[in-house]
């Protein structure tokens, strides 16, 4: 039997070309850092020489000092906590609603007829423009901010999961049926895992929209959170604080995206492309 197994084994990929590729990639990414660093140096020089007024943009060194001060005072972390919770709350609502709608539309003809057309229409709406309406409806508390986050991120979740469910291999569904799986079994063992890769793409995209919605919603009115720090800094021409807050938004976006990628690597470990 052992011989036959050997015959079946696929030839292992050669390691050498892969390693060479990785070396050049590392060299390439170092090379790519050159021009951003040069821009930082030029920016600092312009600020020091007085060409760039701090009222327009503070120097990188001053921004770093401000960041350290804001972190030390706890102001930044408190604001960050508030903003983060808004994103989490809004995104969770979007996840539940988006998944529920996509399952309904993707799995039943009735759902497809009822749910898909209005969602496709709403998707065409520039959702950031809805903010004035949200403020009229919900006032200026947490609700319009969380609502904006939820409304913005529900579409990518719905669309990707709906597409994923539609794209599940018919042959696998057929195989499931011949194994005696009922509708619930097919959904659980075939449709959901088959649509999961698409859903995770939607979750990553939805999270980036969530942060974007939050930034816009927090700029308009906020008494707490990163947005209120920015509003306050704007009134006092503190460009350094504004830049620090923007960097924090960017970092949070990267962080949440990284978390989803970790989840993706685990949930999709059956795909050779992901584990490799």
């Amino acid at each position: 039997m052992a011989d036959a197994r050997l015959l079946e084994r696929m030839p292992a990929a050669e390691a050498k070309p892969v390693r060479r590729l990785r070396e050049t990639r590392l060299g390439g990414s170092l090379l790519r850092l050159v021009s951003p660093l040069a821009i930082l140096v030029l920016w600092q020089l312009a600020s020091v020489s007085g060409l760039l007024s701090p009222q327009i943009l503070t120097s990188p060194v001053a921004i770093a000092a401000t960041a350290a001060r804001l972190v030390a005072s706890g102001e930044l972390l408190t604001g960050l906590g508030v903003s983060f919770l808004r994103v989490v709350a809004g995104f969770m609502i979007a996840l539940v609603v988006g998944v529920a709608l996509a399952l309904f539309a993707g799995l039943s003809r009735l759902g497809e007829t009822l749910v898909d057309p209005p969602v496709q229409m709403l998707k065409a709406m520039p959702f950031l423009g809805l903010l004035p309406l949200f403020i009229l409806w919900f006032g200026i508390g947490e609700t319009p901010k969380i609502g904006m986050v939820a409304f913005g991120s529900v579409f990518p979740i719905y669309l990707t999961l709906h597409g994923g469910i539609r794209g599940v291999d018919r042959k696998l569904i057929e195989a499931g049926r011949t194994l005696g799986l009922g509708t619930a079994g097919i959904i659980r063992h075939v449709v959901i895992p088959g649509a999961l890769p698409s859903l995770l793409v939607g979750v990553r995209y939805g999270l980036s929209i969530a942060w974007l919605s939050l930034v816009v919603a927090e700029q308009i009115n906020a008494s707490s959170g990163i947005g209120s720090i920015i509003t306050y800094a704007r009134d006092f021409l503190q460009t350094d604080v504004i830049v620090v807050c923007l960097l924090v938004y960017a970092l949070m976006g990267l962080l949440t995206d990284g978390l989803v990628r970790l989840l993706e690597a685990y949930a999709l470990r059956w795909r050779p492309a992901v584990t490799a």
Partner: peptide, 12 residues
């Protein structure tokens, strides 16, 4: 039934 393709669920 066994089909021409294995039709295994790749996530299991």
């Amino acid at each position: 039934i066994v089909f021409q393709e294995p039709r295994l669920m790749p996530w299991k």
